[in-house]
């Protein structure tokens, strides 16, 4: 295992399609809920402890070898918005493409065959971590970090926010990222004994509702 593989996978420039998505930030900016660094931090904190925790747990469980088909169904059940389910599968498919070229693996090939139009992105992420020789905690960290780095980068473009302020928001969230990755790892380790219900099922209703609305906008900068 190479520690540095984690940097390759977590790099925002890893070509897996994330750049076109704002994680709900575009809708929140339009609604006036994100207006600067402080409200971006609130938004990211909320997303981290809901969507972020769920994604991190799914990724960690996949990295530990839980059945990806079961995990994919669990991800569906934890994503009420059909627009967000479609986004998660599209991003899963894009990550799959990038990862199969980067870390070729039989497990990724069979998941790609099982889900030609894409499995949920966190499930794919967990298997990618395995293929890259990384552990469950690493997969959880990647998912948790993505849940906040996506909106932070998007808000730099949406509000012309000072990019240093956006980076400082992410740095201030770091201790909570540790906490979420730990909780996700613990939950994933309980799956073999307690079943898939051991994974958290928290959600952020406003993110689900605004995603449905955002998907109908005729003019938008981000796909979600």
């Amino acid at each position: 295992m190479s520690r540095a593989a984690l940097l390759v996978l977590a790099d925002g420039r890893f070509p897996a399609g994330g750049h076109a998505h704002s994680g709900g930030a575009e809708a929140a900016v339009r609604a006036g809920r994100i207006t600067g660094a402080a409200s971006l931090e609130d938004f990211c904190r909320g997303r981290l402890h809901t969507t972020g925790l769920v994604s991190a747990s799914l990724a960690a469980a996949a990295a530990l070898g839980a059945d990806p088909v079961t995990l994919d169904a669990a991800a569906d059940a934890r994503t009420p918005s059909s627009a967000l389910r479609a986004v998660a599968r599209r991003l899963g498919r894009q990550l799959m493409r990038a990862a199969r070229a980067t870390w070729p693996s039989g497990e990724l090939d069979s998941l790609a065959r099982e889900f030609p139009k894409g499995a949920h992105q966190p499930v794919v992420l967990g298997l990618v971590a395995r293929a890259a020789g990384l552990g469950a905690q690493d997969a959880a960290y990647c998912a948790a970090y993505e849940s906040v780095s996506g909106p932070a980068t998007a808000v730099v473009r949406l509000l012309s926010l000072d990019p240093f302020d956006a980076s400082a928001v992410l740095a201030r969230l770091a201790p909570e990222l540790d906490l979420v990755a730990d909780r996700a790892g613990e939950a994933a380790r309980r799956v073999p004994s307690d079943g898939i219900e051991a994974l958290p099922a928290v959600s952020a209703p406003l993110l689900e509702i605004t995603a449905e609305d955002h998907a109908t906008w005729p003019v938008r900068l981000f796909a979600s």
Partner: peptide, 17 residues
């Protein structure tokens, strides 16, 4: 294809979509 405000990213740096 939607490009997240960055067409050159979608045609050069991250071509997955």
């Amino acid at each position: 294809v939607e490009t997240g405000a960055c067409p050159h990213t979608a045609i050069r740096d991250d071509i997955s979509a």
